[in-house]
Write a protein that binds this DNA or RNA. Structure first.
Lengths: 349, 349
DNA sequence: AAGCTCTTTGAAACCGATTTCAAAATTAAT
DNA sequence: ATTAATTTTGAAATCGGTTTCAAAGAGCTT
């Protein structure tokens, strides 16, 4: 490979600086990192040269020699989903504050892609890996992968979102039960008894835990669960639209709908509108994630917020601490909060 | 820094493989890259070991020695904006296909942040940099930065979206004029004469070129331009909402509104609804970008699409070709296409 | 069997930093 | 002015690959 792609400008190195300053490379390195004291006059001479050439040490060489790249790999399901983009940006900011950089990859929920990305990140020697969403359960049951994750953990710590009992990876978990409880109590307080659940797959733990709490709160208030009020699907607007269509055609129509996320809720809004019903006068609608979509729909959605800034910070700090070999709690909890907007109101008003 | 963070598992290297196979590291390297022929039996023995240990060469060492990391840095304004996330994902896919990986950073339009990220990427020795959006004009007029960009271009090629005449960077440009022409002709064909423009800043070239074409098409059809029909702002829902409020309170209300992007359009939808008007019966609404937001609003938005898959591919291919020192056209054009949905209709119907 | 060509191979240098270790230069103490 | 203690410094090794170069080995001719 030709060295000078476009020509003249030679890349300057620590040796060039050393030579011009009349010192050794070691000394320049010490000035660069403040790792040891250097005589004042030399130090200043070196700093002036660094300034002059706008010298920035080669991160590859640095990473090679001290085995820490100060970078964290993030594997997300799909950044086009506002939940992930919000979380990613939060991580990026937190990482920046800690002097780390982040590398992003999208898995699109495909296990093969996820593995390939893991490999690439390991080759790039990131100090830690954060895995957001994706099909966590599948990953863990895939034996090769599970072995691999364990293998990685010895060298490169992995932090995942969502609950995992079997592995030794660190996890940062949203209190899904608490979230669902807040949503249910909010609706029940508004007088709702007929509450439907739209979207989500039961094999996804976060969805499953929400469902369990849904049942529990119903029981607690002496409300009998109706099977036809729970319609599973995926996590997109189409699912929200179709599931809501089915819900609204039921004999005994519910007065409130809980959508698995804002995305699905936006589809629900369309369905409700098309049925000639008003939100929240005829149907209350509540969802999870509190992305900017909750602010775009008409009416604006009541939704569960996770405080993305904090969420991202916890993820990054956990990853960095683990990378440094510090003790970190294996499981950390994110406490959700209900944000009430326009889509939920008193029943039958 | 302690080598073995979590303990035992030693990282295996090309030397370990070489030793166990009873050959030299050079030979293993040759097998790894297929860079030269290796006697069949040795080759197989080596491959078996690579398999056995699931050996993956250290990308840092590789990048250090052959001065090509096969990675492209992408600086976007904000991935939370669906336009950027769509484009980023398209780039990621195209890069993957070419055997490259991508590194993402968000500048949030802040010039200082952008510079810092550029530095980091250069330190990380990406082979090329793609700069999407951001405040291109400002960057170029900032003299230090301009110098720097030129300096970089000698070593690391930069590809930007949007038009730039002064510099030597490569650029991939959406045909904004063509896009606006398609929008205008569409509306005029539907009988609209009173057409308003909402959102966007004139100092942003893409917005400015759209405006020029807007004027041109009006002239061409003998329609007099009304200053009060053009209200600038930023690119978010709030802007769309507020600007549209002002538009709708005009004495001589327009029959069609062109929003600078889907985001702004979603705000416009809210304003129109709040004024008790129907889309498209009372007001037609058209926008640019065709992100998934165009599919979420009620009604769905008629919007200009860029074929993100192709757009991303062009960006990545340009970046990679430039990195390899191949000749690439300095400016490449992306041809937009109008996607007609529910928000535009015949005037006064 | 000798001579020649073509293919394989390994030793060593290099990429650009950091770090260890021992020598050199200062400073402090007697 | 010496000696001891401390601070600065540079040479060399290291991180884990790739590549050049020359030597060794194989395969073909005659």
């Amino acid at each position: 490979m030709d060295k000078d792609k476009a020509g003249n400008g030679k890349t300057i190195t620590i040796y060039d600086i050393a030579e011009e300053a009349g010192v050794s490379a070691s000394t320049v390195s010490r000035v660069l990192n403040g790792s040891a004291s250097v005589r004042k006059e030399k130090k200043e001479r070196i700093q002036k040269l660094i300034e002059k050439y706008n010298f920035k040490p080669n991160a590859l060489a640095k990473g090679l020699s001290d085995t820490a790249t100060r970078s964290v790999g993030i594997i997300a399901a799909d950044v086009r989903n506002p939940y992930y983009s919000a979380l990613f940006v939060a991580c990026e900011m937190a990482a920046e504050k800690a002097g780390y950089s982040v590398v992003l990859s999208n898995s699109f929920g495909e296990i093969e892609r996820e593995k390939a990305q893991l490999d690439i990140m390991l080759q790039q020697k990131v100090d830690a890996i954060i895995q957001m969403g994706g099909r966590v359960d599948d990953l863990i049951t895939d034996e090769n992968y599970a072995l691999k994750v364990r293998g990685i953990c010895e060298k490169t710590p992995v932090v995942v979102t969502g609950k995992l009992d079997k592995t030794s990876v660190h996890s940062v978990v949203i209190d899904e039960s608490g979230a669902m409880e807040a949503v249910m109590e909010h609706l029940i307080e508004l007088g709702h008894q007929k509450i439907a659940l739209v979207g989500g797959e039961m094999r996804v733990t976060s969805t499953y835990y929400k469902y369990l709490k849904y049942q529990e709160v119903l029981r607690k208030h002496g409300i009998k669960e109706k099977g036809e009020y729970v319609i599973n699907g995926t996590y997109d607007p189409e699912t929200g639209y179709e599931c809501t269509n089915r819900i609204l055609e039921l004999e005994d129509r519910p007065t409130a709908i809980i959508a698995i996320n804002d995305f699905a809720a936006s589809g629900a809004v369309r369905s409700i509108r098309e049925h000639g019903l008003r939100i929240p006068e005829d149907i209350s609608l509540v969802s999870f994630d509190n992305t900017y979509i909750a602010d775009l729909t008409i009416p604006k959605l009541t939704s569960i917020d996770y405080d993305y800034e904090n969420y991202g910070r916890v993820l990054i700090n956990t990853a960095i601490a683990a990378a440094r070999g510090e003790e970190v709690e294996a499981v950390q909890i994110i406490t959700p909060k209900l944000v009430i907007r326009e889509s939920s109101g008193e029943v039958g008003k």
